[in-house]
Design a protein around this nucleic acid. Structure first.
Lengths: 383, 383
DNA sequence: CACTGTACTGGAACGGATTCCAGTACGAGA
DNA sequence: TCTCGTACTGGAATCCGTTCCAGTACAGTG
């Protein structure tokens, strides 16, 4: 807190208060905001038509590239358009055409770098196709998902990109059922529905590779601290871990789903280390969770990888300079966004809902090593 | 690349192909999409009026809470609304009222965590006030700023939040001048204009504190690797550094503006370390730059803080577990977003453009220590 | 009882474009 | 020369609410 927030008004732009004769055409006497529309009296298609001495329908045809237009007509209209600096009112077009060229993105929290990159990939691809993106953050409150779906629906978006906070929420399912627009799920799976397209990550592959790596190093007790059990990535990771250890009967797996938060990461770590069979390797299921895990490990002075090995999910840029370098199960979120956009655009083009699965891959790092000879000291027991 | 991307269609939802008698009311013979509008023939206000046996204007009054409505009228209308599941078409409302309840956010790159948090803060505040947020990424191409301002203008947004890629771009200034809607600059300063509100960070305070700290530790050669010279944060930081060292004639400051990229961070570090008077402390002006700096330092096996001290700007969550802990000039991006939203809402309420400055603060860390007795070896000279 | 005011309601214009339909004009073929 | 087709154009309906204006009915007052 170095500096107090400062509020100060700027001097108004106008220099002369109110005296100078306004060149505005016949301003209404005192009416403050009588005609609510026509903010800056921009020219409409009507004015263009009058100016060119043609019908509005002809102006519309010229502007929309209709074939039945003579060269003479085209040039007259274009001249009038130039002179008046006419720009069509998209609102009117939307109303008439019933399409807004807008899609809604429902996301838990855009400040999550993973989701931000997905949003970027999607926005760039959609904009290239002439669509704009409306963003809503559910701040990980499941009922807000439904609220936002309805809200975007009222705004008549043409499609929806959904990174839901909770796949099992009834309100969400209901809101989705009531939605006539095509939607794409982003790493989510609504088992009860098939109307939605989806972009998925192959979490199983990454987890399997990580487990094999850890087992190869000699680990026999592996824990996964996962996020919310109500979303696909968590389920997939848990399933994958359990399947992977089935192939190694000597390996014991523990799973701690909860939430994608630092708090859960810390709490689960504490629980695991204080437990009867503390793991020799932890897989952290997300950025925030990782922060919590690291915090708890640091507090206990548990060394990585000497005392415990660590793998994390979903890369963050700084991770590569972390000491020791973090073994990571990564994926390409930008591409996920781009693919989600492509899937949506395909639906606009008449395609059926589709599902696409993108790879994940495990990258080793110094944070993984052979487990210590003796289990790490289960210090920090409650008194 | 563990897994190939997989594309597979889902089975269509409908089980019976086309035989079953559609319960749809009097479907047009074969017409694929004749009436473009009325996607799902939802009831309009007209239908509600007919059903209730009243005029549309009365329905409108009831729904908009107009005072001149009898209780009888209200209940009749509400009943009809319920029965038909009527929802007003926001598009028509927007067109008529000339307000879209939508604001546009022009941002360089939403995947930058700083900007993502700003976006989150802004979106939450705006949504609470009934506004939706349209997001565009300029991917740090200055001309796209202008393009997007115009694009959002065409969509008739009520206001603009601007994190411009380049304050000096003529097209951007021009686009802004042609814009009738209120705008808020986010840590940007358009010296030629006073029409915009702005949320600023007090970068000077943070830099000054950092410099004092470094000088106190004994540093005499301090470098700032900054981002694009065309945005306010860079200018402010450079100015602050130069002013801060003026108070200490024995201190030599070097400045390397460039871009907010990892590449620039690395290149500038190389340049500085290979220079005649390599710095004993570096201030990295942003996340990406930091990554480049760290990369170069690691490549040269320059130790932090033994060989060189390091300060970074703009916190990232993982930074606190970085070894050594990073000294940071931080600020609260979420609040910046929230304040930007507040400033915009204030303008909608009739207020004049305003400027608010939020604090930054320096937090020390293990990455800063006394400079080495001898200047760090200027190894790595080009052959 | 007549008059004025109040409380409410209906009708219609409006916002700004799209698109169907009907028409005009002109060239070509019979 | 008449007819038909083609190429183009204008008019009007439409999308769906909002809001101004005029009007009705009834209560209150002189």
């Amino acid at each position: 807190m170095s500096t107090e927030p400062t509020r100060r008004g700027r001097k108004a732009a106008k220099t002369s208060p109110a005296a100078s004769a306004a060149p505005a055409p016949a301003a209404a006497p005192v009416a403050p905001s009588r005609p609510p529309a026509a903010i800056a009296d921009r020219a409409g298609m009507r004015q263009v038509a009058d100016r060119a001495g043609v019908a509005m329908s002809s102006v519309s045809r010229v502007l929309s590239g209709h074939p039945d237009v003579s060269a003479a007509m085209r040039s007259r209209v274009m001249a009038a358009v130039e002179e008046l600096g006419y720009e069509p009112n998209m609102l009117a077009q939307m109303l008439r055409k019933g399409a807004t060229q807008t899609i809604g993105f429902v996301v838990g929290d855009i400040s999550n770098p993973l989701l931000a990159q997905i949003a970027l990939g999607a926005e760039v691809a959609l904009r290239a196709a002439g669509y704009a993106m409306l963003l809503t953050n559910s701040v990980n409150q499941p009922n807000l998902d439904a609220t936002h779906i309805r809200l975007l629906q009222q705004r008549r978006v043409d499609g929806l990109l959904l990174s839901l906070s909770d796949e099992t929420n009834d309100q969400t399912i209901e809101a989705l059922s009531a939605t006539p627009t095509p939607s794409v799920l982003i790493d989510r799976d609504l088992r009860t529905r098939t109307e939605e397209s989806a972009v998925l990550s192959d979490h199983a592959a990454g987890i399997t590779q990580a487990v094999e790596h850890l087992v190869g190093l000699g680990h026999r007790r592996i824990a996964l601290i996962a996020g919310s059990p109500h979303v696909r990535p968590t389920r997939e990771r848990i399933n994958a871990l359990e399947e992977a250890v089935e192939a190694h009967p000597e390996v014991h797996a523990q799973v701690r789903p909860g939430a994608f938060t630092e708090v859960h990461g810390g709490a689960a770590t504490r629980e695991l280390l204080d437990g009867r069979r503390p793991p020799t390797a932890i897989i952290a299921g997300g950025n925030q969770i990782l922060v919590g895990v690291l915090g708890e490990l640091a507090a206990r002075q548990v060394r990585i990888p000497d005392d415990i090995s660590l793998v994390t999910c979903d890369d963050v840029p700084l991770a590569k300079f972390f000491t020791p370098t973090l073994a990571t199960i990564g994926r390409d979120p930008y591409e996920m966004g781009a693919e989600a956009a492509a899937l949506l655009l395909a639906r606009f083009g008449g395609a059926e809902p589709g599902v696409i699965t993108l790879p994940t891959s495990f990258t080793g790092g110094r944070s993984c090593a052979a487990p210590p000879r003796t289990a790490p000291p289960a210090q920090g027991e409650r008194p």
